[in-house]
Computed example of a mutant assay.
Amino acid sequence: MKSFSLPRPGAGLVLGERDTPEPGPGEVLVRLRGWAVNARDLMILKGFYPKPVKPDVVPLSDGAGEVVALGDGVRAWSVGDRVAATYFPDWLSGPGTPEKTADDLGGTLDGVLAEYAVFAEDALVAVPAHLDYAEAATLPSAGVTAWRAVVEEGRLVPGQSVLTLGSGGLSTFALQFAALGGAHVISTSSSDEKLAKLRELGAAETLNHASTPEWGAAVAELTGGGVDHVVDVGGGGTIGQSMLAARYGGHVSVAGVLTHEGAADPVLVLVKQLTLRGLTNASRETFQAMNRAIERSGLRPVIDRRFAFEEVADALKHLESGTHIGKVVLESA
Rank of each mutant, 00 (worst) to 15 (best):
G225M: 08
W77M: 10
E261S: 15
L6S: 11
G154E: 02
R155Y: 06
N281P: 05
G159A: 05
T223A: 11
D41I: 06
G47N: 12
G34F: 04
G236R: 12
R148P: 08
E221H: 07
A203D: 02
W91T: 04
L156F: 11
S141F: 10
Y248A: 13
V83T: 00
A217T: 13
I303A: 00
E214F: 04
S141L: 15
A137F: 04
A69G: 05
F287S: 01
V252A: 12
S171L: 00
G240P: 06
D62F: 07
K51D: 14
V219H: 01
F88S: 12
R247T: 10
K194I: 01
A146W: 02
L270W: 13
E214H: 14
A308H: 14
A64I: 05
H184V: 13
R300M: 05
G216V: 04
G235H: 07
V118T: 15
R18C: 10
M290Q: 12
V233W: 00
A183V: 05
A178P: 03
K272G: 04
A76C: 13
L170N: 01
L92G: 11
G71W: 05
G240V: 07
G278I: 09
E320L: 08
T86N: 14
P9C: 13
A246D: 06
V74A: 09
S167H: 03
K46G: 13
D232W: 08
Y248S: 14
D314M: 08
T97R: 08
L13Q: 12
R8L: 13
